[in-house]
Design a protein around this nucleic acid. Structure first.
Lengths: 259, 259
DNA sequence: GAACGTAATTCCGCAATGCGGAATTACTTA
DNA sequence: TAAGTAATTCCGCATTGCGGAATTACGTTC
């Protein structure tokens, strides 16, 4: 992350390792899976058993973990949920966007999501599905890559040159040798966005998923960028429909959310 | 919390204070408010400034806090959101309950919520509102007291005697001198539940809010109890309507969720 | 532009804190 | 009963993180 090794060693006087280790334990839990044993946590976090034991003890006492009564295994506690909902509560775009997104999803029989950039990812703040059952469950809090998704490209397209420059090394690190190709694709995507006002990702992030994205014009420049996508299965939406029908509708949705 | 001071001092060898302090910083953020300065965090957490400085530094580096670019103040980072959504993802009751709850809310023009007990609170895992605009915003992750809400009383009513006994001291501590009165009210509520199969709270938690609650029969005894409420404004729902119409409907909803 | 007030960061010596290998205990399986 | 596996607990050591105080940074007022 930090490229200066000297600064790293000096600054790390400020870094509270015990806190980082504890959070590593919390982050070891994957969505949808059950309770985890201390041992599993130890190998996932790459921490010694006794350390994990102490951390789980502490986290349990604070309510951030709860122990399964039978097995003694740990699951994330409800205190974590309170933190998460506080995050959502602090982004009031959701309150405005949510009902309009729902309407959009119903009108167009397509899924629509609202996200923010976090590094080289987009994090979903809200999603509305047209239909209940979808195989891949992307939900609030999910992360998708900036470079290969429509929503990410839309976000990238409206970054300032300075912000893009700041992001480049992170992307380069993430994509390694593929970075030149990815950079070229991003560049093309920006030009497309400048011309048409939306971005595309047709099967590039997930096979057989067609998506378009737009960014919400941020009220203050420099503020974190919020963006939207609309995505549906390729069997129901071809490129032409996405371009002629969905993209304009999504651009209009954006204008309704931020007038 | 722990009543034995000797055990406290001995056991605290296992307690990782630095982790607790860091989480205290995260928990200092209230829903709906903006970014916080180090100083505000210091006074809210009751930690020295330099300690808070180190903790915010660490949390920011890990993505659990993000810094407002202009002011330098901190807000909860999107990494926290990922944790929160993992919690929700691990309770699959939601997937089943959510669409049925939505249907219920529309059919009965009333709000319905699903919650779990955490100590002497109920934590909401899902809520469906009938109408968009409601003054008090109780959302996913919100906590309401067990003793004075319909949903909490329903939860309490189906606890085993052993579990109630375990809970009593916590409640006693929470309610202090009022505990005898609260205990009597809870006892009456249990008898009502045993007779009619649902619990009531008419204006006892929030003035002018009428609510009824039912518990979902837990598949395995000892498992954390999940429960439901239906609540609406007193001007639209009188006691009679709640008892004759809403309560039976809610009981049927519970049966649809857990057959 | 100097001077002040406020808030954040950084320094630094001290010792408490938390680390982790190893031993112990608890619980399962053969 | 023994063997195996996983969690907890012990304990000495030195690292880590603490927090008062000094420093820096920033914004405001004269």
């Amino acid at each position: 992350m930090s490229s200066n090794p000297v600064a790293d060693e000096e600054k790390d006087r400020l870094f509270v390792g015990a806190l980082a280790r504890g959070l590593r334990v919390l982050a070891a839990f994957q969505p949808g899976e059950g309770a985890l044993s201390n041992q599993v946590l130890a190998q996932r976090t790459d921490l010694p058993k006794s350390t994990v034991s102490r951390l789980t003890y502490t986290l349990t006492k604070l309510g951030y973990l709860s122990q399964d009564h039978d097995t003694g295994y740990y699951r994330l506690g409800l205190a974590v949920l309170a933190l998460g909902s506080t995050v959502l509560g602090s982004y009031d775009i959701r309150r405005v966007a949510s009902p309009l997104m729902r309407e959009f999803a119903l009108d167009n029989t397509i899924s629509v999501s609202l996200g923010m950039r976090d590094g080289t990812d987009i994090v979903y703040l809200e999603t509305c599905r047209s239909q209940a059952r979808v195989s891949v469950q992307l939900t609030v809090g999910s992360r998708v890559p900036l470079a290969s998704t429509a929503i990410g490209r839309a976000c990238y397209a409206i970054l300032s040159p300075a912000e893009r420059a700041a992001l480049a090394p992170e992307l380069a690190q993430r994509y390694g040798g593929d970075w030149p190709a990815v950079a070229a694709r991003l560049q093309a995507s920006c030009e497309h966005y400048a011309q048409f006002g939306y971005s595309e990702s047709f099967g590039e992030f997930e096979r057989d998923v067609m998506a378009v994205g737009v960014a919400l014009p941020s009220p203050v420049p420099g503020m974190p960028v919020v963006c939207l996508n609309a995505s549906g299965p390729a069997f129901a939406f071809n490129a032409d429909t996405m371009r002629k029908q969905i993209a304009p509708a999504l651009m209009q949705l954006a204008r309704r959310i931020v007038p």
